[in-house]
Structures are given as C-alpha cells and as structure tokens.
Computed example of a mutant assay.
Amino acid sequence: MRILVVGFGRVGARTARVLDAEGHEVTVVDDDHGKVLRARERGFTTIEGDGGDRSVLETGGIDEVAAIGGLTGTVETNHRICRIGSEYGCRTVMRLSEDVDPEVYDRYEADADEVIYPERFGAAGAKTAILGGDFNALGDLTEGLQLIVVRIDADAPVVGDHVNEIDLGDHGRIYAHGRDGDPLTIPLPGTAVETGDRLAILAVTGAIEDVESTLLG
C-alpha cells in the first residue's frame, strides 16, 4: 500500500517507521531540510517542500497513493493536506492539537476520514503498554473514555463489513483490528471483519454496552 506521510517530526517519524515495518511503501514530505535528511537516512523516499502545497504533494505521487497523513505540527497545514487528498480520492488522516476550538474541530473533521490527537493517544498507548504491552489491557484513558477489545463471534451483525465503515456514532471509534491469533494493527481500507477478529475501540465509558450491542448484536 502506498502512503504519503507529511511531517517527519515525532508523530510522523514514528508513523512512517511503523507503516514501513508492516511492508507499506511510504513517502515522506517535510519542509525541514534536516528532517528530510533523517528520513532519507532511514531509507524513506523523500520530498522536501511545503506539504500544504498541491504541487509538492503531486510530486510525492498523491494521485497514486491509497492514503495520506497530515501529521505536521500545524493544524492549518494538515487541513489543507487532507482537503487536497480528498480531491484525489485517498484516505485522509488529520493531526489536531488538544486546544482546537470545538467549532473549528467540526469543520476540520468534515474534511478528513480520521482525526487524531497524538498527545492524548500517546499517553493512552503508554498506559496500555505499562498495563499489558498490547491492546489487551482495559482501563480508563481519561475520565470519560475507555479502551476496550471486542471479539467478534459468528452471529455478530458486523461480520463481512469493512472495519473503516462501521459507524459507532458518538459512542466510540475503532482504532485497531486483528485476526484471530494475530497482533492488533491499524485497519486498512477494505479490511473486512471475520468471525474471531478482535476490534480495539476507544469508547465513551457510559456507552460501552451500546458499542458492544452495535458490534455483537
């Protein structure tokens, strides 16, 4: 799967390494010469330039990639990246910061397939690793959120559905998927749910029963 990662800071660099380790073809875009050199030294195809510039993304092959991540430290740039990516029909992921105004968030969310808060989920991942080293841990991530893992049985209504099309509404969001016996990873577009699969969900604490009902019937 060909993927454009725009921004090779802390979040982008780690994302690129994980995707590369899973066998995906990653191109890194950044306007910082030092970061471009570091990405190149680690074996990535690189483009030096402003990731919010359409011509730079076209040089990076946006017309051929399956997904693009706007992972720079600038919200406005990430927004432009995702809007351009949407025009080319690829999956778009936008990095936001915790302090984004709710009204602005609603506008940005409409222009991306997925919105992430690295500051929040970095802490969540650290806690998960401490408790169990995998998404098998179940614990409070914030006062109102929990990370849960649901195993899909043969009678579940979501069997056969694509993971990225399962709508949990405001009750939660699916963040990882794994086949029976395999580790949990970020689900790819087109990944269909099978009997025995596990889904890791970030759920509103008071809505866990609703989430389980949607997934399991």
Rank of each mutant, 00 (worst) to 15 (best):
D140V: 10
T128W: 07
G73A: 00
G133Q: 06
Q146S: 13
G69F: 13
V93H: 03
G125N: 08
A66F: 09
V115G: 13
S55T: 13
I68C: 05
A137H: 04
Y108H: 11
E64H: 08
V75G: 03
G69P: 07
V93F: 10
E143Q: 06
Q146T: 09
G133K: 04
E98I: 13
A124E: 06
L96N: 02
G144Q: 14
L57N: 10
Y108M: 05
H79M: 11
E109R: 12
G60I: 08
G122N: 04
V93G: 01
S97F: 14
A123H: 14
A129F: 12
T142A: 06
G133N: 09
G122R: 05
F121Y: 12
I81G: 01
L145V: 07
V115F: 12
K127A: 15
I68G: 10
G60C: 14
A123P: 13
D101R: 03
G144S: 14
D106H: 12
I84L: 02
I81Y: 02
E98V: 14
Y105L: 12
I84D: 00
G144D: 15
R95C: 02
D101L: 13
E76A: 10
G70P: 01
I84E: 04
L141M: 11
D101G: 09
G70V: 04
I62A: 11
G122Y: 01
E103V: 07
G125F: 02
S86A: 12
C90K: 02
D111Y: 07
G70W: 00
G133F: 01
T77F: 02
K127W: 01
I84W: 00
D140Q: 13
I81N: 09
D101W: 06
I116S: 08
S86C: 04
R83S: 05
S86F: 05
R80N: 07
C90Y: 01
T77E: 09
P102S: 11
A112L: 08
G60P: 11
Y108R: 08
E98Y: 11
G125D: 04
G133H: 12
L147M: 09
G70K: 00
G139E: 13
V104L: 06
S97G: 14
A67Q: 04
F121I: 14
A110T: 12
E143V: 12
R120G: 10
D140P: 12
G89S: 08
Q146H: 10
G61N: 03
R95Y: 01
E58W: 11
T72F: 00
A124S: 07
G122V: 06
L131W: 06
G70L: 07
P118W: 01
V56C: 06
D106C: 11
